[in-house]
Computed example of a mutant assay.
Amino acid sequence: MDLLSIVGVILGFAAIIGGNYLEGGTIAALVNVPAAIIVVGGTLGAAMLQTPWQSLKLAASHLRWVFSPPALAFDQAVDKVVRWAMTARKEGLLGLETMAEMEADFFAQKGLQLLVDGTEPENIRSIMEVESHVLEQRDIDAAKFYDSMGGYAPTIGIIGAVMGLIQVMSNLSDPSKLGSGIAIAFVATIYGVGFANLLLLPIASKLRNLARLEAQFRDLMIEGIISIAEGENPVAIQLKLNGFLHR
């Protein structure tokens, strides 16, 4: 669980609500169902329109990463690669076959299988780098969904504001209806700008950062597996891979 993300969300909304309270406002004044429908529905619809189905499913599944990011233990990965190197030095590359079958990480498993199959180091690098690039681009595309929502939300909020003003202008002769129109106008703007800057854009940035970290983790595996294929000393491999720990 990422406590920093939880604290960030709570702090952001507490600052807005608390500031409103200190200025004499009430929470009820910030609650407006029509404005929420306009902003949330319009923003989601616009983002869905531009997003392919597979990217949309991935964006929904990656949302949990914001509060529960994938565990990327770089130090443990270095130790694991060194153990593979020691096994390869003692038993040969075929000695890694059992480890490949037991490896839970599909990316590392694929690299080990390439080693066992006797694939040339340059071919291993080419195969694994292509897959790593595709996986990184896939994760970035998932983040773009929230980026797009963050871009649309303020504009949809303005549309909601204009709709509220239209209602106000059409009911100038009936003062009892002016309040609801003005409320929609201002609250819709707050919803659009607030959701974009407190939730949607930060979520997109967080997912992009996690995609970058996962790509670095795969780079560690690539360098380690290539080093084993080239017959490097396990101690030298460890020293090389320790560079990934200074991220």
Rank of each mutant, 00 (worst) to 15 (best):
R89C: 08
T87L: 13
S173K: 13
F186E: 02
E136I: 12
L135K: 10
M86H: 11
I124P: 06
I225G: 05
L4P: 02
A36R: 05
A59S: 13
I203A: 07
E122G: 11
P154C: 04
L210W: 05
K206A: 11
N242S: 13
N209M: 13
G41K: 08
H62M: 14
M128H: 00
N209Q: 14
Q109D: 03
S5E: 02
M99Y: 09
D147V: 00
D105N: 15
A142F: 01
N171D: 09
P202A: 07
E23L: 11
I127R: 12
P234M: 04
L245C: 01
D75A: 15
P175Q: 11
A35R: 03
A14D: 05
L135S: 13
I158P: 04
G164P: 07
G192H: 00
P121D: 00
A142L: 02
I127N: 11
L63H: 05
D105G: 07
I184C: 05
L58F: 09
V31M: 12
I124G: 03
R247H: 10
P175V: 14
V82C: 01
P234Q: 03
L94W: 06
L114Y: 01
R125P: 09
K80S: 12
L4T: 13
I203V: 14
A142I: 01
V162T: 06
G150W: 07
M86N: 13
A60Q: 13
P234H: 04
V7C: 01
A153H: 01
N32Y: 02
G19S: 08
D75I: 10
D141T: 09
L56M: 13
S61E: 06
L198Q: 02
I27K: 03
L93A: 00
G118H: 08
E101P: 04
Y21C: 00
F244V: 05
H62E: 15
Y191K: 03
F186T: 12
S170C: 10
F107K: 06
Q216C: 09
S61V: 00
A47H: 05
N123V: 15
I228M: 05
T26A: 12
D79E: 15
V81A: 04
L96S: 02
G92H: 05
E136R: 15
L220A: 08
L58K: 14
G243C: 08
V168S: 04
S170M: 15
E232A: 10
L72V: 07
I156E: 06
H62S: 10
A108F: 10
I159L: 15
I182M: 14
P175E: 09
Q113F: 09
I166P: 06
M128V: 06
D75Y: 00
A46G: 08
G8I: 01
A60W: 13
L198V: 08
L72P: 08
V9F: 07
